[in-house]
């Protein structure tokens, strides 16, 4: 084991870690919002909305994430260059950057997978609580905001922790479209210093620590929510 490359490539790892965390946060937040829409959509009484949510879930869960990233990056993303209006617009610096394609792909993926989880959580909230809310005269939207969703998320916290760790690991795919996340940094070190194990083991360690941190944050959240065991 030799780690002297750390002095000249350490900065790449720090920058890569920043990118990984940005990917995780951006796609996590966007994806969660989408997942809420999909989760409620799956339970909708409107046949079209229910069908749309189900089709989206099937599409996202039925295709590999890497294929989705490639379709967005190499497919959709390479079309923009032929429009001078797009090239000259203020959006171009974002449209040419692989980062946002990965964020969109990851957010869609979270929407598909977590949407299904949220549907399950929404169903798991005891009917009596919703009926009690209605009996107290709560309007439907308030019921969702104060009772249905908070209770569902409380039930789902352990699953959401798992999904967040999965999302963290999915961000590693960003390195396949030349986005310099931590794995990208490790690949560069690997290519330039010809050391194989040290950079890869460092990356594995970084992901382990991040996954542990995510689990901890979720456990804290679980503890903060008071649970009354008395019925």
């Amino acid at each position: 084991m030799r780690f002297e490359w750390m002095s000249s490539y350490g900065q790449f790892f720090i920058d890569g870690l920043t990118i990984t965390l940005e990917l995780l946060l951006c796609s996590g937040v966007l994806g969660f919002l989408l997942a809420l829409a999909v989760g409620f959509g799956r339970l909708s009484r409107q046949p079209f909305i229910a069908w749309l949510s189900l089709s989206f879930t099937n599409l996202i869960r039925g295709t590999p994430l890497l294929v989705q990233i490639y379709v967005l990056y190499y497919g959709v993303g390479s079309l923009f260059v032929s429009f001078p209006a797009v090239r000259d617009s203020f959006l171009w610096p974002y449209l040419r950057d692989g980062f946002w394609y990965v964020v969109v792909a990851l957010a869609l993926s979270v929407g598909g997978y977590v949407g299904e989880v949220i549907k399950g959580g929404l169903r798991a909230v005891p009917k009596g609580e919703l009926e009690a809310a209605r009996a107290l005269g709560m309007p439907p939207f308030m019921t969702v905001r104060r009772i249905w969703l908070p209770r569902a998320i409380q039930i789902l916290l352990p699953s959401l922790a798992g999904e967040s760790v999965l999302l963290l690991k999915s961000t590693a795919l960003a390195s396949t479209v030349a986005v310099m996340d931590v794995l990208g940094a490790a690949n560069l070190v690997r290519a330039q210093t010809l050391r194989t194990y040290e950079p890869l083991l460092s990356v594995a360690l970084i992901y382990l620590v991040l996954a542990w941190l995510i689990e901890r944050v979720f456990r804290k959240l679980e503890r903060r929510i008071p649970v009354r065991s008395a019925i």
Binding site: Y74, G77, S78, F80, V81, R87, R96, D97, G98, T176, V177, A178, M180, G184, N187, L188, A191
Partner: peptide, 18 residues
């Protein structure tokens, strides 16, 4: 500087103006 795993990927991104 953007680093690529293969020249083919770089050529594709060059063509796409990235």
């Amino acid at each position: 500087i953007k680093y690529y795993n293969t020249q083919d990927e770089l050529n594709a991104d060059m063509a796409a103006g990235r």
